[in-house]
Design a binder for these strands. Structure first.
Length: 348
DNA sequence: AACACGGGGGT
DNA sequence: ACCCCAGTGTT
């Protein structure tokens, strides 16, 4: 029994029922693949349902505003995926007459579609014999074949791609690719895989050598930095506030937030008062006070954001003010969304 | 080659 | 606290 036959057999017996498993529509497959980049199925699933309902066809997505796309994406993270999704939808709808490319090379040209996603769409929708190599595949291959090359070094990436191509079943690529990923997600898990009932146990090098827990090998990632965020929460006499859109290329690009004062360490109230000068709309502040006693530590994969919200009550209204209910219509980071929820309940 | 980019869930 | 997740794009 070959590796690929075992994978196909296991997949037939164990595959989960997922909405994108019942279609070859490249729009739906593409949508699911973008959403599942660095994202668990359980987290992406409700977003997939929302997007398919609101945007049944790629033209619907192409014709939406970026604001709406980001709002629907809110909470899923890695927001460049949403911006690229929107851009790619426009390309497909208006540059390719609504048809997705049906080759690896063609798909790879779409923004947000890299090696993995191009291979996934080409194989699942068009039966192209392209191997997928995602986090699951790295784990399964490294363990079964006992590969100790780091999965996140240039040489390792090439090695695993070549190995994946050698052991795939090009005649059943659609099920094989989904099968090896599903096998990694369900059976060959990162922690405590149940090797006792694994159909591949007799041929698994790592199991034989007792190296399951040390595979795959991964180079250390860069360490987390701590940043100090001070959000100024304007409140006018009419109870309105003020949001602005983030620009540039850092985190949360194009999402909305309160005026932000970033400091090298935790700020004192006088520093925050000084920061008001950067925002002319807040020049008539009559009262500034700290909202949360202890900083909220919002954890991203590469940043810890120590955040304090400062309520800034003004004497007059300001240009561009919105009510706190209207604020919920804007795409905002989870950090801001959670603040809005508690603040509305406590302040008013 | 190294880093930026979110948020949630498991251990 | 650390790891991982159906990775991609930029520097």
């Amino acid at each position: 029994m070959t590796f690929s036959r075992e994978i196909l057999g296991w997949y037939r017996r164990n595959k989960r029922s997922l909405p994108w498993r019942n279609t070859r529509d490249p729009y739906k497959i593409w949508l699911s693949e973008i959403m599942l980049q660095q994202t668990r199925v359980a987290q992406g699933l409700p977003y997939y349902q929302k997007f398919v309902e609101r945007f049944p066809k790629v033209e619907d997505l192409a014709n939406a505003s970026e604001e709406e796309v980001l709002k629907l994406w809110q909470g899923l993270g890695y927001y460049s995926r949403a911006r690229n999704l929107h851009a790619a939808a426009k390309t497909v709808a208006y540059g390719h007459q609504g048809r997705f490319p049906d080759t690896y090379d063609g798909l790879l040209k779409l923004p947000g579609v890299g090696d993995y996603t191009a291979s996934a769409i080409a194989s699942i929708c068009f039966d192209r014999p392209e191997p997928v190599v995602d986090g699951n595949v790295y784990r399964v291959l490294s363990r079964f074949f006992g590969v100790t090359q780091p999965i996140n070094a240039t040489g390792g990436v090439k090695y695993f791609k070549t190995l994946a191509r050698e052991v795939m079943d090009g005649d059943h690529i659609r099920d094989y690719n989904q099968g090896i990923m599903e096998f990694g997600a369900v059976q060959c898990t990162p922690k405590s895989p149940d090797c006792g009932v694994c159909p591949l146990r007799s041929g698994c090098v790592a199991l034989q050598k007792n190296t399951i827990d040390s595979l795959p090998v991964k180079l250390a990632k860069t360490k987390v930095k701590t940043l100090y965020f001070n959000y100024l929460v304007p409140v006018s006499p009419e109870g309105k506030t003020w949001l602005r859109q983030r620009t540039g290329k850092g985190i949360w690009r194009n999402l909305w937030e309160f005026p932000l004062v970033e400091t090298p360490k935790e700020a004192l109230i006088d520093e925050v008062r000084g920061g008001l000068a950067d925002f002319p709309q807040l020049g008539n502040a009559v009262n500034v006070y700290r909202y949360n006693e202890n900083p909220i530590v919002h954890k991203l994969s590469h940043r810890h954001l120590h955040t304090v919200f400062w309520v800034v009550e003004t004497h007059d209204g300001f240009e561009g003010g919105v009510s706190f209910d209207e604020a919920d219509k804007y795409p905002v980071p989870v950090l801001i969304a959670e603040f809005l929820k508690t603040f509305k309940n406590s302040y008013f």
